[in-house]
C-alpha cells in the first residue's frame, strides 16, 4: 500500500518536472513546422547565428530560411508562448481570488473590455493600444465585481452572469466601432477580434513583453498568498493577509496579463479556464505549484494550437476559433460539476 502511494507520488513528481520543461521541445518543434520546413539543427543554428554570430551544427544557412525563421516564425512562436502563459496565469489568479472555478479573463468580460479598448485605440489613435486595453479591462472587472457583489457575498453564478452582461456591452461597443471605422482598417479589425497571431512582428512582442513580465512577476511573487485569498476575506484577515491589498495587486497583475495579450492578439477565449483546471486535476490546487505549471502548460498549449491553426489548411484559421471549440466542452463539464455541488 505504502509502496503504491510512493510510486504514485514519484510518478506525479516526474510528470511535474516534465511539464516544466515541455515548453522547450514545443518551442523548437513549432519553429520547425511551417510552409518552409526546417530541421531542428537549422533552427538552433539560425538562432545562435543571429544572437552570437556562430553555429553549433554547421548548417548551411539560406537567406530565405533565416528570414522565415527569424522575422516571421520566431516572434510568432514567442508571442504565442507569452500569451498562452499570460492567459493561463491570469485565469488561475482570477479563479483563486474570486473563489470561483468558472471565471477567466473571457468569462469575466476582461477580454471583451480589453478588445474594445484596443480596437478603440486602433480606430481612433487616441492613446497607446496597451494602455487603452488595460484601462477598459480594469473597467470591466470593476463593473463585473460591483454588479456581482451583494452584501459582502460574491456568488459563482452572479459573477458569470455579470461577466456575460459586461462582455455583451463591450462586444456591442466593439461592433459600433467597426461601423464607423475606415473600411481599409475594418477587415484587419474583424480578423484581429477572432484572436490570431498572423500579424505578429517583433514590435508586437516588444510592446507586450514588459507589461507581461510585470504581471508574471507580481503573481509569481505572491502566488502562495493566492491560496490564503481563495479562502475568502474573513479567513485571509484572521491569517494576517490583508485581502484588499493583495486582491488589488493580483487583480492589477492578472488584468495586465490578459489585456496585454488581447491588445496584441485579439480575443483568445477559454485558455485561462482550461489550463489551470488541467493542472489542478493533475497536481492539486496549491497555487505555489499551480501558477508556474499553468505558465508552462499554457505556453505549450497555445503554441501547439497555433501551429495547427497555421498549418492545417492552406489558409490561416484564427487560433481563437480553435481554443473556443476546445474550451467550450470543458466549460460545460465544469459548469455541470459546479452546479451539482451547489451554485455557491
Amino acid at each position: 500500500m505504502e509502496r503504491r502511494k510512493f510510486d504514485k507520488s514519484s510518478k506525479r513528481r516526474s510528470l511535474e518536472i516534465c511539464l516544466y520543461f515541455i515548453p522547450i521541445p514545443v518551442f523548437l518543434t513549432a519553429l520547425c513546422i511551417g510552409a518552409y520546413k526546417l530541421r531542428i539543427t537549422e533552427v538552433i543554428d539560425i538562432i545562435l547565428y543571429k544572437i552570437c554570430g556562430y553555429t553549433l551544427f554547421d548548417s548551411r544557412l539560406k537567406a530565405l530560411a533565416v528570414k522565415a525563421l527569424f522575422d516571421i516564425r520566431l516572434p510568432r512562436v514567442i508571442l504565442s508562448m507569452l500569451v498562452g502563459a499570460a492567459l493561463s496565469v491570469s485565469g488561475a489568479s482570477f479563479q483563486s481570488i474570486m473563489k470561483n472555478p468558472l471565471v477567466e479573463p473571457y468569462t469575466l468580460g476582461v477580454s471583451s473590455g480589453a478588445a474594445f479598448g484596443a480596437a478603440f485605440s486602433m480606430a481612433f489613435s487616441l492613446m497607446p493600444v496597451q494602455i487603452s486595453a488595460f484601462a477598459f479591462a480594469m473597467l470591466s472587472i470593476a463593473l463585473c465585481y460591483g454588479i456581482a457583489r451583494q452584501k459582502e457575498q460574491l456568488s459563482v453564478i452572479s459573477l458569470i452572469l455579470a461577466g456575460i452582461v459586461i462582455s455583451s456591452i463591450f462586444t456591442a461597443a466593439l461592433s459600433a466601432i467597426q461601423l464607423f471605422v475606415d473600411p481599409l482598417k475594418l477587415q484587419g479589425l474583424i480578423f484581429w477580434t477572432m484572436g490570431a497571431f498572423y500579424t505578429t512582428t517583433w514590435s508586437k512582442v516588444f510592446s507586450s513583453v514588459g507589461f507581461m513580465a510585470a504581471g508574471f512577476a507580481l503573481i509569481f511573487i505572491f502566488r502562495w498568498k493566492l491560496n490564503i485569498l481563495s479562502l475568502g476575506d474573513q479567513e485571509a484577515k484572521i491569517l494576517g493577509v490583508n485581502p484588499a491589498l493583495y486582491k488589488g495587486i493580483i487583480i492589477f497583475a492578472a488584468t495586465l496579463l490578459a489585456s496585454s495579450s488581447v491588445a496584441v492578439t485579439g480575443i483568445i477565449s477559454l485558455v485561462g479556464l482550461m489550463i489551470p483546471h488541467v493542472c489542478r486535476m493533475l497536481f492539486g490546487p496549491d497555487n505555489k505549484k499551480l501558477v508556474p505549471l499553468s505558465m508552462a502548460l499554457g505556453a505549450s498549449y497555445l503554441t501547439v494550437v497555433d501551429t495547427f491553426a497555421r498549418n492545417l489548411f492552406t489558409f490561416e484559421i484564427p487560433v481563437g476559433i480553435f481554443t473556443t471549440f476546445l474550451g467550450a466542452p470543458f466549460f460545460i463539464i465544469l459548469l455541470r460539476k459546479v452546479r451539482s455541488a451547489g451554485w455557491n
Partner: peptide, 28 residues
C-alpha cells in the same frame, strides 16, 4: 472559525500550512 469552505480541494496538510501565513512573506 465555525467552518471553512474553500472552493478548491486543498489537502489537509496545506490547510494547516496556511496557519503559517503570518510568518511567510513569499513561500513557506
Amino acid at each position: 472559525p465555525q467552518f471553512s469552505s474553500p472552493s478548491f480541494g486543498y489537502s489537509v496538510y496545506n490547510m494547516i500550512l496556511w496557519g503559517r501565513a503570518p510568518y511567510i512573506s513569499y513561500t513557506p
